[in-house]
Design a protein around this nucleic acid. Structure first.
Lengths: 228, 228
DNA sequence: TCATTATTGTCATAATTATTACAGTTTTTC
DNA sequence: GAAAAACTGTAATAATTATGACAATAATGA
């Protein structure tokens, strides 16, 4: 974790973040004046926020990639979100009653991250409507995202989870490229990797899907849906 | 589902809802003028919102109790939230990009529910700061709540889930009264009831907890924590 | 109050998943 | 390009959980 930037030469960078991008041009100077922030650089593997720690700061990733994970106190992690620059982080629980972070945020590459204190976010929201609305929609989307994740994890069998996952990833098409390893998928499902692979192979055996490395072809979409 | 109230005699009722309770007295008349809403009565078992349906309305339960559930397309449900009057419903995804409801809302008793269209909520938020802040904190709390739920469901074994659940419900004390049936707990965990009961009895056998109906006494808190 | 319904504990069996281990393959990294 | 690391498929065995069914008890309603 390197020291703060001496000064951020290109402060306009913040307007690339979706949270701020809709702020009208004629308000941007005012916005920058009202904004209190610091910028830090992180290396791959650095931890920005620790699960359970008090976090009263809005973070905006302006370079690099950060993943948020939830540990199950056994060393194992479940990835919750994968955030690429330029996007905000920790919007979800910033204003929650219990402001301890439910997740850990870990840099997946070299990162530069802006930190804005909660009180300042309050102020900005009151003063800049576009910011407020974007913030609101960000949190709302998070609720939606978590709900979907919850549904996935709640499916009882690996077969159901995998079917759900594949249908979702296929976006209605018949061929999909897995973007992550089977190990990661297993982690998302909270199941073991061998069990996941076994089920995937069984489904291929049955002719429901075709598996070629990370390319998966959906043969019988109806059957896939019936597994849910 | 009975017809709308002809007119809501006691419109002040809405200020009992936490979303609106902090609106200053001197703004309340204006607030009621700006507010667009309708009130409906429901019977026990009535469905207010169906999972997957478009829902661009903020609901406030002013009498009765509503539970939100997520079905796994197999007839089985997982309860997400239990809302008692006077509290809002569906705050979470109202402003999400995909405004289809991820849950179904089902009345658990006779209910009276206020409906406010999304656009009107927008307007109220811009105009009444206290309302905006409360709304924000409501969504944030929902994110927190869902995160916690996700952690629970992600724990792999029933033993871990039960330990987590009991530790949480005990609030640090040693005796706790279960507020819901074992069947409901099993549903929350997404596991079968017999399996849950079996694990609970095993833990009692081992002297980690003591079970007397719905009263549970935590004997060995450390051991409970080690199961996570 | 009595009847009805919901809840609870238990069981045997079947199904699913975890664990551990290994070897072959692909991808990264230097 | 070679070495290291990560990824993949597979298998045997153990552990966990689901299923369906049953009787006993508690709670509820008319």
């Amino acid at each position: 974790m390197k020291p703060d930037y001496p000064y951020l030469e290109n402060r306009q960078m913040i307007f690339q973040c979706p949270l701020c991008s809709s702020i009208p041009d004629n308000q941007r100077d005012d916005f920058l004046n009202d904004l209190q922030f610091s910028v830090r650089e992180y290396d791959k593997g650095d931890i920005v926020v620790t699960q359970g720690s008090l976090s009263e700061t809005l973070y905006i990733v302006i370079r690099g990639e950060v993943s948020t994970e939830m540990s199950d106190e056994k060393g194992d992690f479940m990835e919750i979100e994968y955030i690429k620059a330029p996007n905000p982080m920790s919007t979800g629980f910033l204003f929650a009653a219990d402001s301890r972070s439910p997740v850990s945020a870990i840099c997946q590459s070299k990162c530069a991250i802006i930190a804005i204190p909660k009180d300042n976010v309050y102020l900005l929201m009151r003063k800049y409507e576009a910011f407020m609305l974007k913030f609101l929609s960000y949190i709302s989307n998070k609720v939606f995202y978590l709900s979907e994740k919850l549904r996935l994890v709640s499916l009882r069998s690996i077969r159901a989870k995998l079917s759900y996952f594949l249908l979702k990833e296929s976006f209605g098409g018949n061929v999909l490229q897995l973007k992550i390893s089977r190990e990661d998928i297993a982690r998302i499902f909270s199941v073991s990797r061998p069990a996941l692979v076994k089920v995937m192979m069984e489904m291929a055996e049955e002719g429901v899907i075709e598996v070629n490395g990370r390319e998966i072809r959906i043969i019988d979409r109806n059957k896939l849906q019936s597994f849910l």
